[in-house]
Nucleic acid binder design. Structure first.
Lengths: 147, 147
DNA sequence: CTCACTGCAAACTCTTTGCATGGTT
DNA sequence: AACCATGCAAAGAGTTTGCAGTGAG
């Protein structure tokens, strides 16, 4: 219930890359392991730090390059939330949008078929078709009165 | 019907700044004039170029600084669409979201109370209140079959 | 006459890229 | 052995900022 973009296993990622004719190198293994852990929606620097703990020789460039490759392969998705760096999440789950807790930076996924339908309607009524869309709710936890 | 963030007149902008104790300088006058023209959703570089034609001495820094001041005053809004630089629009009209034509970069404003309501519902059901939100539809013109 | 504002250049953040070396297949 | 991928450092894009000079009030 937490993750709609359910994290692929590391093996799954590796197969995906291998079958695309890419080499499974040590740095990539490390990075894929981190993605497979599925801890939130990390940015490149976070991935880099986590990777460094496993293998101190992994470079930030490689993190960026690997993310780009995975993105091009459609294995991950990149999100740029307000004012921040790109954050990544495993792709392949159902499409969803995001709530971003403005106090903690935590990201919560949600999905609304009603909203999706309304968007379609809006675009179509203006003579357009939707190529992609982005819906982000920047939120704050309600405290005090319960409910 | 094109602009929901109806462009304030230049005088309106100036008054707004003056009453906030700010000095109306030559560069600011020039920049405000451009904003008042309300031509689309320009980015800083575009504003800079347009300003340069009127007064070649205006600097890009001043454009950025002025935009920031106006943004802090709530006189304009900043939008960062996918992969692009910040783009600005006069604020004060009703809230609205954006359709971005992926082929031309043109921005079309729209508004959906239904979607707004659904967003509220989604946030609330998860224990959050919305601080701000962003809804962008990246679209392509439908051609061929009419309708 | 003051002090906010300016232009300029330098700094900054995030990301990409050129190059020579190194590791997979 | 071939050549893709790597690390490093440098380059980019967009934006912000330090500084000394300038001009609005």
């Amino acid at each position: 219930m937490e993750a709609m973009g359910e994290p692929k296993s590391q093996e799954r990622y590796e197969d995906e890359l291998r079958s695309a004719g890419m080499r499974i190198t040590r740095p990539r293994k490390t990075i894929l392991k981190i993605l497979a852990e599925g801890e939130g929606h990390p940015d490149a620097m976070t991935i880099f730090h986590r990777a460094s703990e496993i293998d101190a020789s992994v470079s930030l460039s490689t993190v960026y390059r690997t993310m780009k490759v995975l993105e091009d392969r459609g294995a991950i998705q990149r999100h740029v939330f307000e004012g921040g760096p790109s954050r990544f999440e495993p792709a392949g789950g159902r499409h969803h949008d995001h709530l971003i807790d403005t106090e903690t930076g935590e990201v919560i996924e949600f999905r609304s078929d009603k909203i999706e339908a309304l968007q379609e309607e809006i675009a179509r009524s203006r003579g357009y078709e939707i190529v992609s869309h982005r819906l982000e709710l920047y939120v704050r936890k309600i405290r005090g009165r319960k409910r």
